Amino acid sequence: MQTTAPALSLPPLISTLIAPLPKTPMEVLLTRFTRRLLARRPELLQRLGAVVKVPIAIVPDDMPHAFLLSLDNDKSNVEICNKDQITRAKAVVRAPFLVLLGLLDGTYDADALFFTRDLRIEGRTEHVLALRNTLEEADLTPGEFFGLSGKPAQWMNGFSGTLLDKAKRLTGNQSRHTSSLEQGGQW
């Protein structure tokens, strides 16, 4: 696990290409996958405690939009919005997109990134810590997030790890460590 993130900003062209895409289809998919995951793993909401029903904004520095995450059983929602539309979030997590993904797959250490300011948290830090601790304990993989098991889940985990590593290489900053996704590790 790396303690610092190399400059992993996506090329500006990617942000330019993503900006005009319709947000609604992605919102529907992310919301559906989130709700299904929480239905399969209700202990995740129990572990979150006070964070349930608290909107948290995930803001990739190098993308045109933010993700507003609200968790509440079958009312969970992922909203894709402009970065200036996250005012109702109680906590905000900011970092380059690939750093955020690297946090999910275990490539980067969140504590170290926080202290080097590669990862920035605003607002109610305790909500972000509860979310991070829940995700770490859950040991989620991309396959599980998408509701897969067995061989399809293994394929999705391997594919996701490969895709993340290729994206890192595209930015010119390949990780010195093998992604834990390739090894079936946590997301």
Rank of each mutant, 00 (worst) to 15 (best):
L103E: 00
A39N: 14
A89T: 05
H65D: 13
V93E: 04
A57N: 04
R124I: 07
T3S: 14
T107S: 15
D109R: 13
A89F: 08
V28N: 09
S149W: 09
G150K: 09
D62H: 09
T134D: 02
G147Y: 10
L37H: 10
E79V: 13
Q2S: 13
L101V: 13
L44K: 09
Q174W: 02
Q2R: 14
S70G: 05
R88I: 01
F145D: 00
I14W: 11
R88D: 08
L68Y: 06
T16S: 14
A167R: 11
R36L: 10
G49K: 12
P12C: 12
L129Q: 12
N157C: 08
A7T: 13
G161N: 02
P55C: 07
D105G: 02
S175M: 12
R94C: 01
P55G: 09
T178F: 02
P55V: 11
V92M: 06
L68W: 02
E79I: 11
A7S: 11
G147T: 09
E126H: 13
S180C: 06
R124T: 10
R176L: 12
K168G: 00
P20L: 07
A130E: 06
N73P: 00
L37E: 03
P55F: 06
N73K: 15
W187C: 00
I14R: 08
R40A: 10
V128P: 02
S180F: 08
T16G: 09
H127W: 10
G158E: 05
K23L: 14
R169K: 15
A153H: 08
G147H: 14
P6M: 08
G49Y: 11
E122V: 03
K90W: 01
A91I: 04
G123T: 14
D72F: 04
N173W: 03
E122G: 15
N82D: 15
E137W: 13
L101W: 04
P11H: 15
H65Y: 12
G150C: 12
G158P: 01
E126I: 07
S76A: 10
G102L: 04
L164Q: 07
G184T: 12
Q186E: 04
L129D: 06
K75E: 11
R176T: 07
A19C: 07
R94A: 03
M63E: 15
A95D: 03
G106Y: 09
E137A: 15
G161D: 03
G158S: 14
G147D: 08
E79C: 05
D72P: 04
A57T: 08
R40W: 01
V51Y: 01
Y108G: 00
V99C: 10
R35S: 02
S15C: 04
V92D: 01
G184S: 08
D105F: 05
E43V: 06
L48F: 07
L10H: 06
Q46W: 08
L10T: 05
T3Y: 15
T34K: 06
V92R: 15
D62G: 07
L148P: 04
E27W: 06
P152K: 11
D139L: 13
P142G: 09
Q186K: 13
I14M: 13
N157W: 10
I86K: 05
S70C: 13
I18G: 01
L100P: 00
P6C: 03
K90I: 00
A130R: 11
L10D: 00
